[in-house]
Amino acid sequence: MTNVYLIGAGPGDPGLLTQKGRRHLETADIIIYDRLVNPTLLYLAKKDAEFLYCGKLPRHHIMRQDQINAAIVANAAQGKKVVRLKGGDPAIFGRVGEEMKAIRDAGLTYQVIPGITSSSAAAIYAGIPLTHRDHNGHVTFATGHQKNNALTEIDMTTLAQGGTLAFYMGIENLPRICEKITKQPELAKLPVAIIEWGTLGRQKVLTGTIATIESELAQTTMANPAMIIIGNVVKERSDTSWFEQTPLFGKRYLLASETGVTFDQICNYTELGAHVYALRIQDARFDDITTRVLSEQQWDGVILHDGTPARIFQEELLRLGINETFHIFQNDPAHVILEG
């Protein structure tokens, strides 16, 4: 009987998780998740599910890949239902092949549940279709890092032939990418878009050309995680995309409720463009997550649901050792923030 599920969490917007992924997430005994997984997806876990964070930063891994593989196998061998939750689609630069092999080698079975990949989702949330009959007939997915000379293997002539090139996590190597492309001088004027934190309310988009994008990026604080989209489809972006025109886009809210914020309540905010994180009051499984999220990001305030007094939120911060001050909104009557 299969008890290991390798699930794509999608690009960030929690509403983009697949229904199949949600069903297995809700019944997992242990969830092993990455840094780029939206932590609000863990709200779907059952009350006694374990969480294991294996977040990866550039040049700094909480867990190495072999340790992740070992954790999957060890927990599955104990009879637990294991969900390995990975950002985007696990089969596109997600190292899922290595995890599949480790599971097979241990004599266990597994299922892979694809997710929406970041290139298509981030691009269209920025108003850029990856394909357009007026601009291109093919798309190339590429990794933006230099391991195993990945960049040298990319045939840039596809761009000259009207293609679109989507680089995952390529900001640090943008100079090399641009240098390689400009070896064909006619490509220097190709449009480029950099999309940081695509599909989230904190999304930022920078556009330019191969010739200008490096200097324009240097004037910003943009960093990975980001997609780089190169090709004439970038011309389809208007000043602001459909997503950036949603009423709460750019707002960053913490949500808190003494009785617990539901996943559907979270999605009510994200569908209107807000970037949110919901505190799980007195749930120790979320302590490290909450501390990390509140320390790494800036917030416009906290919205208290279900008549939750401010004291409850303040006591939770004290319990976690977080010394921050937040503007407090009472969402009473319900949805006053959403409608305002």
Results as ranks from 00 to 15, higher is better:
143 T>K: 10
76 A>M: 01
94 G>S: 09
293 V>G: 05
109 T>E: 01
223 A>V: 15
277 Y>C: 04
340 G>I: 07
185 P>E: 13
197 W>L: 06
63 M>V: 05
227 M>C: 07
153 E>P: 04
231 G>R: 00
185 P>L: 15
139 V>F: 03
198 G>N: 01
2 T>I: 02
4 V>T: 01
246 T>C: 07
129 P>S: 08
86 K>A: 10
143 T>I: 00
59 R>C: 07
173 N>Q: 15
140 T>F: 02
20 K>A: 10
97 G>Q: 14
15 G>L: 04
247 P>E: 14
154 I>V: 15
305 H>Q: 14
334 A>K: 02
317 L>D: 12
168 Y>H: 11
299 W>I: 05
69 N>V: 12
209 T>W: 00
163 G>S: 06
155 D>I: 00
76 A>Y: 02
210 I>A: 07
225 P>M: 09
319 R>K: 13
172 E>A: 13
120 S>N: 00
249 F>M: 09
302 V>H: 00
209 T>F: 13
116 I>V: 15
306 D>L: 07
281 I>G: 09
10 G>L: 13
302 V>M: 11
329 F>Y: 03
300 D>V: 00
53 Y>S: 09
73 V>D: 05
23 R>K: 14
163 G>E: 07
271 E>L: 07
224 N>Q: 06
292 R>E: 09
13 D>K: 03
39 P>R: 06
333 P>S: 04
90 P>Y: 06
137 G>Y: 06
295 S>V: 04
157 T>M: 15
324 E>S: 08
28 A>S: 08
308 T>L: 06
26 E>R: 01
57 L>V: 05
189 K>I: 02
209 T>I: 05
257 S>R: 09
282 Q>A: 08
113 I>S: 10
274 A>S: 15
318 L>M: 14
289 I>N: 03
132 H>R: 00
239 D>Q: 13
191 P>G: 13
259 T>V: 10
270 T>Y: 04
74 A>H: 00
7 I>E: 04
160 A>E: 12
314 Q>F: 11
96 V>A: 12
238 S>C: 11
34 D>R: 02
173 N>I: 01
164 T>E: 01
144 G>D: 02
328 I>K: 01
240 T>R: 14
306 D>W: 01
181 I>Y: 15
82 V>T: 03
307 G>W: 02
255 L>E: 04
151 L>H: 06
59 R>H: 07
299 W>Y: 03
266 I>W: 11
23 R>M: 11
278 A>G: 08
130 L>N: 03
43 Y>T: 09
4 V>Y: 00
136 N>S: 13
162 G>C: 13
161 Q>G: 06
58 P>D: 08
147 K>Y: 12
93 F>T: 02
334 A>I: 00
238 S>G: 13
327 H>D: 11
160 A>M: 05
84 R>C: 13
107 G>N: 06
38 N>F: 12
207 T>R: 02
205 V>A: 06
230 I>M: 00
73 V>S: 08
131 T>F: 11
169 M>Y: 04
298 Q>P: 06
195 I>V: 08
11 P>N: 07
303 I>F: 10
246 T>V: 14
53 Y>D: 10
158 T>V: 08
259 T>A: 12
154 I>R: 05
290 T>R: 14
304 L>W: 04
67 Q>Y: 06
